[in-house]
Design a protein around this nucleic acid. Structure first.
Length: 359
DNA sequence: AACGGGGGCAACCGCTCTCTC
DNA sequence: CGAGAGAGCGGTTGCCCCCGT
């Protein structure tokens, strides 16, 4: 049997909150707390609202010490660098910015920061395009005017941004080196060779750099980021080592917000599965590469749509776990956790990126 | 002054994971 | 152990305001 039914959705109010409703909710929570049950809360407060709506209103607006607007340059940098590192994990990003909510940051990014970044890069990319001949061709060699300024050029910019960032963080990643793209089979062979050598020497420094193995700190919870190649990695890992990285993820530790840390892996599991993860991630990368149209690869807009990395630069969804390459090496995992140090590290990456693109 | 378009933001929706029964 | 509710999250929507014409 499950729990009692949720709120009566036919009888709940929607839309903007009135000051009276705000006052009621705030007064009640100030006095009684949330009681750990948002669904039951509206009834107790006397509001005709869904529990989820109350929760959202409290967290995003009524909660004490909430800051709205007026993002500082430092906050901009943190948001950018974290977005670059982990993608649109707004709750995690918000955890690094006291007083900021995920919704606020998300809105800020979508409405301003993204435009600011991409807008400033537009000119330099236009210059690049013109230096490349000014025109693009699709995979069939036909001229493609979809790169005219607008959405597609923005998508192309994001591809460049993504690739540039990947090259900063993971020199092994296949799309880090455009020169390799047409050479599908040799690279594939090379990757297989690397994979084989990885199995032979699973802890070479090179691979350690590319696929660091975060270690949990005793007494601290460790959470996971999902990988889009989740099923694939897990499957590969099972077949390679008989171990399941059940979360298909990379561990991180969030001291500031333990609520984000939902999974406590056994240190042993991580250690044992580390080599397996490395190998299978590498295998997943090969698969990814093989599944991508790469001969004379000049992505059209529809091809871009197939690339996860074009989806709003959501780099964490690329499945290669690349965000962790620098931000979360073993040392920072054990000493610094997912704290301001790693943020600063990300900021450094971001600054390098800025330099590279004349931001 | 009126109108239309665009931007910003609050709130909703839908999904996934966790928890409880 | 399975079903279903709760919690949390990211994406999307819709309203409101501002600005340009």
């Amino acid at each position: 049997m499950g729990r009692a039914p949720c709120c009566d959705k036919a009888n709940v109010k929607k839309g903007p909150w009135s000051p009276e409703e705000d006052a009621k909710l705030k007064a009640y929570i100030d006095q009684h707390g949330t009681g750990g049950n948002w669904i039951a809360l509206p009834q107790k407060v006397g509001l005709k609202r869904c529990g989820k709506s109350c929760r959202l209103r409290w967290l995003n607006y009524l909660r004490p010490n909430i800051k709205h607007g007026g993002f500082s340059e430092e906050e901009d940098n943190i948001i950018c660098s974290l977005y670059i590192s982990i993608g649109s994990r707004w709750s995690i990003i918000a955890a690094q910015l006291p007083g900021r909510t995920d919704n606020d940051i998300k809105n800020y990014w979508n409405t301003r920061l993204k435009k600011k970044l991409l807008g400033r890069r537009k000119q330099s990319n236009m210059n690049n395009m013109s230096s490349m001949g000014g025109e693009t061709k699709d995979a069939n060699g036909q001229e493609d005017d979809s790169y005219s300024p607008g959405l597609s050029s923005s998508a192309f910019e994001r591809l460049q941004l993504h690739m540039q960032l990947q090259s900063l963080q993971n020199p092994l990643s296949f799309y880090n080196n455009p020169a390799l793209w047409p050479k599908l089979h040799p690279l594939h062979e090379k990757m297989i060779q690397n994979l084989q050598s990885l199995n032979e020497f699973p802890n070479t420094p090179l691979m350690d750099h590319a696929f660091p193995s975060p270690q949990p700190v005793q007494g601290q919870k460790v959470g996971f980021y999902e990988s889009p190649t989740a099923a694939k990695v897990n499957e590969l890992e099972k077949s390679l080592h008989g171990i399941s990285s059940s979360d298909n993820s990379v561990a991180f530790i969030n001291e500031n917000n333990p609520m984000d840390s939902t999974h406590v892996p056994k240190a042993n599991d991580i250690e044992q599965s580390n080599a397996g993860i490395q190998a299978s991630v590498f295998q997943a990368e090969i698969d990814n590469f093989l599944n991508t149209k790469t001969v004379d690869f000049v992505p059209r807009e529809d091809q871009m749509a197939e690339f996860d990395c074009f989806k709003e630069m959501n780099v964490s969804k690329d499945g290669v776990l690349w965000w962790s390459m620098n931000d979360f090496d073993t040392r920072s995992a054990s000493l610094n956790s997912w704290d301001s140090t790693s943020v600063l590290h990300s900021q450094q990456i971001f600054q390098e990126y800025e330099l590279g693109y004349n931001l």
